[in-house]
Design a binder for these strands. Structure first.
Length: 736
RNA sequence: AGCGGGGUGGGGUAGCCAGGACAUCCCGUCGGGCUCAUAACCCGGAGACCGGUCGUUCAAAUCGACCCCCCGCUACCA
């Protein structure tokens, strides 16, 4: 028997957890800990809500409530969702507790005393209009090094330079776009550089880590560690535990990772032995596992280990089996079918075991996995219901009906050996996979065993055998009950609820939890009464949302006719133009068209404008929209609305238009193409159909494609007619 | 454009790090079987030159180089 510490990344308390959290960091540790407990190990599994940080205060401002309200609300929602999913933590706490405040303060003071923290005066932006210091991500300006317009308060996104603070050119408050002032402020920095060598040595022998985690960490470390500030000027968070530090709190990333330690301490207090946590953190034989998504790797393989090294005497992570992402791109947006994928609403529709099965079967262990409702439906119905559920049910119901108890086993039959062998083989491969956190592989082995059961059941044909030789039939069924028992135990980390149900059908007094892992191939008592079984899983059906248009993507846009009033050179960029465009109102647009159009050519031109793009600063100048232009290698031409169009007229092709802003990257996912009009249809390199008519004699039109291989596309048009483009462009040319 | 991750029968995947005999499994499809079971289950067939090219090797899906494509992040894409 061993002890294990399982640490799970803390979900951020500003929204409900969704399937991505479950696949990335929540389900794997639960599978692991249930498995280890079954094998008789003692597990301490902890996590909690990450409740501090700017996004929560922003949300609170919007809702006009306190940050605490937001943080507590989502803590409760997520805690419940996690419990309802049957994910069993020793403790799922939160960062806004006295205990956590104390532990973080302790660590802070300890590192300070040891010289791993130092105070440094920096220039920080303060917005007089908003009356507060601005977090770095809420200041934008021009990078002094590379002159990129995409610099944030602490770092330039273009060249990667980090600033001491206050070095930005033309800084702006992102909220109100006014000019913030610089104020001197002192902050504590952690001397990460002091741990570099030690960390490199530590990571070197982590060959058993997932390659992506190990490599990523190694590269990061070899690139060199920079000291990072660990305090901020804001109210929401853990106050810096020193005099004269009003208005300063500990930066959320420093605060959150310490949660692993504070939660362990809190758990120990609650369990009645306040020192119980120590063993888990100091006994070098006790391994610690950290489960998280790949975005979280550096915090757990560099920063947290650095803090632990600074503190001294505490175990560093043994393994960090980070998962990739569960993506949602296969399904057009989230609302398009059935349910959304946040856990509280998912649980209203599906049993936890169903969700657990799907997530485990589609777990992004080695690469991103894609979620789709089709896949969800198929995996549940074909694998869980048809293979495993059906096998359970045919064995249990047939035996119950014909014997009502566990029938007698005749010695030395072939099937006895065959089935026992199959069970043991599966047990071995499941153990091997589980020990190495390969949960998808272990589940596969279990399903293979269920299929073996089905096959064997078919070839034995008990329904025929019972008429000829009741005793031999009973003996065969005995072995199938053994197999059912094995499957129930093996799968219980994945399907805790239904496995216990099977256990009851088998007439067992105890639970699987009590019986333990060895029950996989233990004997079944003859004559043990069976209980009448019911099917464990039923097929699911996911309805299509009929209201959803094929062109939902197009409807996220708001296209308008625009007229270019004035074109000027961008002050800080060679290839960009600054345009004033009339779209019913005057907006400023930055366009990368200088190579293709002269200023004179552009002035007065009618164009099509994406009017609901989220405004951005391009090299320091505000851009409030973009002009649609077709692009084929070295030819770039603006697309033209029909003649006589007036600025501000919608280009909606008869569809709805969105009044919400759209992110540039979401806009980019939409497919717009040039199409050559012919009698046969539209040519975009292949022939497709048009959903709306092209009545006039236009030769080149612009189409919106719902997907890359769609057979039908929507022609961009106003009420006056379709949008056209210069004939030098071939069909299929992209439009952006 | 930069960085990271991928491209394996119609769809989804395993294998790749530690190269070798018919390339795995699920779904779909075609044909058959069975009737205990939730139109389930079981058997068999068709279907992949393992993104492309070149190379290393007796031998490459697996190693190397270059190229193409997809995805994520980042961007003087707007």
């Amino acid at each position: 028997m061993a002890k294990v510490l399982i640490c799970v990344a803390w979900p951020y308390a500003n929204s409900p957890i969704h399937l991505g959290h479950v696949a990335g960091s929540l389900l794997p540790p639960d599978l692991f800990s249930r498995y280890r407990r079954l094998r008789g190990d003692e597990v301490l599994m902890i996590s909690g809500s990450d409740q501090h940080g700017t996004p929560i205060t922003v949300r609170a401002e919007i809702e006009k409530v306190t940050p605490l309200d937001v943080a507590e609300r989502y803590h409760e929602i997520n805690k419940k969702a996690i419990e309802d999913l049957n994910i069993e933590f020793s403790l799922f706490t939160k960062t806004h507790t006295d205990n956590h405040f104390h532990v973080v303060s302790d660590v802070f003071l300890d590192l300070l005393e040891k010289g791993f923290l130092y105070e440094k005066v920096t220039q920080q932006y303060f917005c007089p209009n908003c009356a507060k210091f601005l977090p770095d991500r809420y200041v934008e300006g021009i990078c002094p090094m590379c002159e990129s317009g995409h610099a944030r308060g602490d770092q330039c996104e273009q060249c990667g330079k980090t600033f001491e603070g206050g070095e930005l050119t033309d800084a702006r408050c992102v909220h109100c776009l006014t000019i913030p002032e610089l104020r001197e402020t002192k902050h504590h920095f952690i001397r990460l550089s002091a741990f570099q060598e030690e960390l490199i040595d530590w990571v070197k022998d982590k060959q058993y880590w997932r390659p992506s985690v190990q490599l990523f960490t190694q590269n990061w470390l070899e690139a060199g560690l920079e000291d990072r500030p660990i305090t901020r000027d804001m109210e929401w968070g853990i106050p810096v535990p020193l005099p004269d530090q009003e208005g300063k709190v500990i930066y959320v990333w420093f605060d959150a990772v310490i949660g692993y330690l504070s939660a362990s301490i809190e758990w120990a207090k609650m369990s009645g032995d306040p020192d119980a946590w120590k063993e888990y953190w100091t006994d070098p034989k006790i391994r610690s596992y950290y489960f998280l998504g790949k975005d979280n790797i550096p915090f757990h393989t560099i920063i947290w280990p650095a803090i632990l090294l600074g503190r001294g005497g505490l175990n560093l992570p043994y393994d960090v089996p980070a998962n990739e992402f569960l993506t949602f791109r296969g399904d057009k947006v989230s609302k398009s079918r059935g349910t959304t994928i946040d856990i509280p609403s998912l649980l209203k529709k599906f049993e936890p075991d169903i969700i657990r099965y799907y997530v485990a079967a589609n777990m992004p262990e080695n690469k991103d996995a894609d979620f789709s409702w089709d896949d969800f439906e198929a995996k549940i119905n074909n694998e869980l219901v048809a293979t495993l559920g059906n096998y359970y049910h045919r064995v249990l119901s047939f035996t119950y009906k014909n014997f009502g108890e566990v029938p007698k086993l005749i010695d030395a039959t072939e099937e006895k050996d065959e089935i026992l062998q199959a069970i043991r083989k599966t047990r071995k491969s499941v153990e091997e996979a589980m020990d190495n956190c390969h949960f998808k592989r272990a589940l596969k082995a279990i399903m293979d065993l269920a299929q073996f059961g089905n096959r064997h059941f078919d070839s034995t044909a008990p329904w025929a055998l019972i008429k000829k030789d009741r005793e031999r039939c009973g003996s065969a069924l005995h072995m199938h009950l053994m197999l059912v028992k094995a499957l129930a135990v093996l799968s219980s980390p994945y399907l805790p609820t239904s496995s216990e149900k099977v256990w009851k059908f088998l007439g067992q007094d105890s639970t699987i939890q009590q019986s333990g892992w060895s029950a996989i191939d233990s004997d079944l008592p003859y004559h043990q009464r069976l209980n009448e079984s019911k099917p464990l899983f039923s097929k699911i059906e996911i309805e299509e949302d009929e209201n959803d248009s094929m062109y939902a993507g197009f409807e996220t846009l708001n296209l308008k006719v625009g007229r270019i009033i004035e074109a000027n050179d961008h002050p800080n960029a060679d290839s960009l133009l600054l345009l004033d465009v009339d779209i019913g109102k005057k907006i400023q647009v930055v366009a990368g068209l200088k190579e293709y159009y002269s200023k004179e050519e552009m002035e007065g031109l009618n164009v099509v404008v994406v009017s609901n793009l989220k405004p951005a600063r391009i090299r320091g100048e505000r851009s409030e929209g973009m002009l649609l232009a077709a692009d084929a290698d070295d030819i770039v031409r603006l697309v033209s609305p029909p003649a006589d169009s007036k600025p501000g007229e919608p280009v909606n092709s008869g569809m709805n238009q969105s009044d919400r802003t759209v992110e540039f990257k979401d806009f980019q996912k939409l497919i717009l193409r040039v199409a050559e009009v012919s009698k046969e249809g539209l040519d975009i390199g292949r022939l497709i159909k048009a959903s709306n008519p092209v009545e006039d004699g236009s030769k080149r039109v612009i189409v919106y494609m719902p997907s890359k291989d769609a057979e039908e596309a929507l022609v961009l048009a106003t009420e006056r007619g379709p949008v056209t483009v210069d004939e030098s462009l071939p069909g299929g040319a992209t439009v952006r």
